[in-house]
């Protein structure tokens, strides 16, 4: 479980996160949504330790990151898998080497054991016969699959995804969303996804946190979000004609 209390973060005197409280529970796919510039990515990166918080508490399984020793922090990082917006695969490494990289860095497994695990996770994300390809030779959806495989290869307890659907067609986006949710259930991990994709919200939004101007504006699930009267959420969700029609249907019911 991840608990966030009173998280503040700013850059060059400009506050970005303004006292966010949140709880992310295991086996639940939690979504952080909001407009561009609302602080989603900064929130995610601050949780991951890529940005130092100005104030507030970030706890993983009841232990605040501020109270962790260097070894505990190192261990925590090995329990975290991350899928970046642009996949962030290492260009100079093949698919197999990319996925094997965390194993090579942090385990003492033999080459055969590592290969077995790599092939297992690549199969799990439905990516076969691509082991020797380089990231540049893959489509966007395939790159996301490799990124997910790399994120889960060390059996992490926490999975973070920053805009996993960006740049993907709606069909592939749904496949990736479902894959993330299946992995969350299967490995009993705590998953946090940053998105502004309403399809994701409808597909896998077991818990949704809506950020606006650095504040947590609203919290609920994929059913609640279509019924809420919160103006900021309504403006965000019903910004497209498709969802305006969905809202009308809900209201008619």
């Amino acid at each position: 479980m991840i608990e966030i209390k009173g998280l503040h973060k700013g850059f060059d005197g400009t506050p970005i996160l303004k006292g966010i409280d949140a709880v992310f529970e295991p086996t639940i796919t939690s979504l952080i949504i909001g407009q561009s510039g609302s602080g989603k990515t900064v929130f995610l990166k601050t949780m991951l330790g890529l940005h130092q918080p100005d104030s507030g508490i970030i706890s993983f399984n009841g232990k605040s990151t501020a109270d962790m020793s260097i070894n505990e922090k190192r261990q925590l990082k090995q329990d975290i898998g991350m899928v970046f917006q642009g996949s962030a695969l290492f260009d100079s490494l093949t698919v197999e080497e990319n996925v094997m990289f965390p194993l090579k860095m942090f385990t003492k497994q033999s080459k055969e054991e590592m290969l077995e695990r790599v092939n297992f996770v690549l199969n799990r994300v439905n990516l076969v016969n691509s082991n020797k390809k380089f990231p540049a030779e893959l489509s966007g959806g395939m790159q996301k699959r490799v990124a997910i495989a790399r994120a889960i290869v060390t059996k992490p307890k926490y999975l973070f995804c920053d805009e996993p659907n960006s740049g993907l067609d709606p069909r592939t986006a749904i496949v990736i969303d479902n894959l993330i949710q299946e992995i969350t259930d299967e490995y009993k991990i705590t998953t946090v996804i940053n998105t502004h994709d309403m399809n994701s919200v409808m597909e896998i939004g077991e818990k949704i946190i809506f950020l606006k101007d650095g504040y947590k504006e609203w919290e609920g699930n994929s059913n609640d979000i279509f019924k809420t009267d919160n103006e900021a959420v309504v403006n965000f969700v019903y910004s497209s004609n498709l969802f305006k029609k969905v809202r009308k249907l809900y209201q008619d019911e």
């Binding site: 190192r74 090995q78 975290i80 942090f106």
Partner: peptide, 9 residues
């Protein structure tokens, strides 16, 4: 990619 390395510890 550098963030990815940092996240891995």
């Amino acid at each position: 990619q550098i963030d990815a390395l940092e996240v891995m510890g």
